[in-house]
């Protein structure tokens, strides 16, 4: 008895809630001109986007054209392109010491080195991993999950895990000492700190790219491989002439996404090395962050200008990616 009353009440409540949008929607349908109803649905999202994305972009442009250290926009003097000029003022671009903003150019060259090494290695590793995981090996499901797992971790957690491993009294050195070796200051030498930032970022992101490549591999029909077997193609030739060309669209996606994300590298490295030792692992985004928010003198204008330059690079990479995707879409269709 009580049960039926309760369930009836629950049913009424459910109906009432579900009918709640009915009246406003009817009103909107009646009063909005045809085809405009869509705006009502994207409206809330658009508002959030405007406040937290479009507005900052405009603000960024404004700050890039102003100088001084005051945060209030009204108190900032207009300097035009001076910030860009000082960032780009260099006797020799390959020699950061000869530049007005030497830290910016150290960051740029660090980033270039990092991107080249990280993307190349990550592509190679994720390709090999995907090829192995695409075979019928024992524990395939487990390995697929294991390789993807780091992708689910927050970058800060990733950095803390590896800091715990690599610091002076960390796990790795404990193992060294246990084996009778001298502990190594992994994060205090420029070369090794740089190497570890490359390694950790590959470790953290590889699973995602492996997944893309794995999906690409599985999209290649099995009968093509059977045809190749009938055509007496040796394994290496099958890889070069069949697997690789058919996987190329996925490789391109991985390449460009990997490039974009490598250029943007910040959080893992910031927590792991803080950009050090010296500025050995200070990459572009960290330079921007330091300049704008953590230095003694907060040069918002300079940081804004540097971030616009970075945005330009990312825009070019994104356009390349969009083109690649479009080419892929049309060749499939």
């Amino acid at each position: 008895m009580i049960g039926t009353i309760a369930s009836q009440a629950a049913g009424r409540l459910y109906a009432a809630v579900m009918n709640l949008p009915e009246r406003p929607m009817r009103w909107a349908q009646g009063h909005l001109p045809d085809g405009r109803l869509g705006w009502l649905f994207v409206g809330p999202n658009l508002a959030i986007f405007a406040v937290f994305t479009f507005l900052p972009i405009i603000v960024d442009f404004y700050y890039a054209g102003t100088g001084g250290t005051n945060l209030l926009p009204t108190e900032r003097p207009w300097v035009g392109l001076e910030n860009f000029a000082s960032l780009l003022a260099c006797k020799d671009y390959f020699e950061p010491n000869s530049c007005v903003r030497d830290q910016f150019w150290y960051a740029i060259w660090n980033t270039v080195k990092f991107v080249a090494l990280q993307v190349a290695l990550m592509l190679a590793f994720s390709l090999v991993t995907a090829l192995v995981l695409n075979r019928k090996i024992i524990g395939r499901g487990f390995f697929r999950a294991a390789f993807f797992y780091p992708v689910l971790l927050s970058p800060v957690v990733v950095a803390l895990i590896w800091k715990w491993v690599l610091q002076r009294d960390g796990v790795l050195n404990a193992a060294f000492v246990g084996a009778g070796l001298q502990p190594v200051e992994w994060l205090l030498s420029a070369r090794s700190a740089f190497g570890w930032t490359v390694f950790v970022s590959i470790w953290a992101h590889m699973g995602f790219y492996t997944l893309i490549l794995l999906a690409g591999l599985q999209a290649i029909p099995a009968d093509i491989y059977e045809a190749a077997a009938m055509d007496a193609a040796p394994p290496l030739r099958v890889f070069r002439r069949i697997t690789l060309p058919l996987l190329m669209p996925s490789v391109l996606v991985v390449l460009v996404l990997g490039l974009i994300r490598a250029v943007q590298i910040f959080d893992e490295v910031y927590v792991l090395t803080g950009g050090g030792p010296g500025s050995a692992t200070t990459y572009l985004v960290e330079f921007i962050y330091n300049t704008g928010f953590s230095a003694q003198v907060r040069q918002y204008g300079l940081a804004a200008a540097a971030s616009l330059l970075l945005a330009g690079v990312l825009l070019v990479l994104t356009l390349i990616q969009l083109r690649g995707m479009r080419a892929k879409g049309s060749s499939r269709g």
Binding site: P221, I224, A228, A232
Partner: peptide
């Protein structure tokens, strides 16, 4: 004997042409 060494040719129902 592996397929490659039997000296046979198979025409697949799906054709299985190399698309690229």
């Amino acid at each position: 004997l592996p397929a490659a060494r039997r000296g046979l040719a198979l025409v697949f129902q799906s054709y299985a042409l190399y698309p690229h």
